[in-house]
Design a protein around this nucleic acid. Structure first.
Lengths: 234, 234
DNA sequence: CGTACCTTTGATGTGAATCAAGAGTAGTGG
DNA sequence: CCACTACTCTTGATTCACATCAAAGGTACG
């Protein structure tokens, strides 16, 4: 169902026009973007850019998985975000003349599109609706970063894990009963994303299992009782 | 030199046109903003809005000081940002239909301007340059939040304090020698901003003083040796 | 089928929070 | 001007959540 690294032909206009950011653009706007856009294949473990690099555009994930993180002196790194298909990143640095605050690395073999900044600026000149979408997109990202800060500051490690699991429930409504979640990547990366060590994440999964709240089998997590898990407040 | 709470007449066009966001707007654009703009006086300790409130515009600090923070179950709160004159906040929530993730409270008696969102959207329709400034503004905020996440995740409490002091040096260049800093608000608020308890901040100030790196006298902090402080890496 | 990495589990360590008093430092009103 | 109250800040003793260190499974993959 998913495209592979060896499939060479991409319908770039279709990919672009399906993104929230570019919906409602007319074909000629899409065409302009297409010509400002370059494919970039990234192998698992390969670095896309380093912290401190300048940016002259932003990226869209077509398929694969990318992590954004900052490096640390002692080799350990802190994962800021894990990105999957149809997500974009790097917009913010494009609008500043600051170097990128994080580095980007492929978690698996991936295909990205790079949109040059001049095309974006031209679109901005002529299409106020696009500007609004762009602003909305940045605002959403700001919002989720603020939530991250709240989570890191105010919640215990177990609460962060529970929050993560609940966020990844298929639907977010008043869902009762049990759900199955498949972790998007290795537990060490998720641990870093949640600001904890792999050991601590492992122990928390163990505890939640022991209390019958979840069941863990590799990357498959079964949430037995969403309601109880939500009430979890150690 | 500073306006007081009792000075009633404000030159709103001048205030607006001096803001980075609104520079280069023509007088009639400023006039449109002025009519969409309401004064809001806020006493020390008074709440401007609660976490969860919707927003139909954003705020500019004319004078005074505002803190943005999230509340916590156990009464302790986490300060996200401390805002002073000529700074604005609340733009991001305006572009989403999400409730505000933080609350805002006056740290001292303050005067704010509120700009209605419809005026902003109209400006966005007609002025691409304004859109670009708005995007740049949000990007900067995103950038500093990412830096906060990095700081909280990767640096020890003492390093966070040192970083805070260095950020507040008069200039940021290769400054040698000593500087005087005046803390913008109480130490407890600063402690919360740095994600630590007042006790811990006090101890760190004590240690830095004992090592001769700084001298503390109330809100006055003297940095004796900027270079040594910068090399501080516990 | 062996090497390399991911994950789990246990023992131990530690940075910063919490708890508990005191010691400034303001503002307030008589 | 001096209590009086109410914070804010400091200092010490203690606790605790989580990291670190260490070692033994698991699992994937060439």
């Amino acid at each position: 169902m998913q495209e592979t690294m060896h499939e060479t032909k991409l319908d770039i206009p279709q990919i672009l026009s399906r993104l929230p950011l570019f919906q409602e653009l007319v074909p000629e706007q899409i065409a302009a973007l297409e010509s400002a856009c370059r494919e970039r294949r990234l192998a698992k473990g390969e670095m896309l850019f380093q912290k401190g690099d300048p940016a002259k555009g932003f990226f869209i994930v077509v398929f694969g998985q990318i992590k954004l993180a900052f490096p640390s002196s002692q080799g350990n790194e802190k994962v800021v975000q894990i990105l999957g298909p149809r997500q974009s990143f790097g917009e913010a640095v494009m609008f500043m003349d600051r170097p990128c605050p994080v580095f980007a690395e492929g978690l698996v073999d991936s295909l990205l599109l790079h949109i040059g900044s001049t095309a974006v600026f031209e679109l901005l000149e002529t299409d106020p609706m696009f500007a609004r979408r762009m602003l909305a997109g940045l605002s959403m990202r700001l919002h989720s970063l603020v939530q991250d800060v709240e989570t890191y500051s105010l919640r215990s490690s177990a609460q962060r894990v529970v929050g993560y699991l609940l966020q990844h429930c298929p639907q977010d409504g008043p869902c009762e009963g049990s759900f199955d979640i498949s972790l998007p990547t290795s537990k060490q990366v998720i641990a870093s994303r949640l600001n904890l060590t792999p050991e601590t994440l492992s122990r928390i999964f163990h505890d939640l299992s022991a209390n019958g709240l979840i069941a863990v089998s590799g990357k498959q997590i079964t949430i037995n009782d969403v309601k109880k898990l939500r009430e979890f407040d150690l």
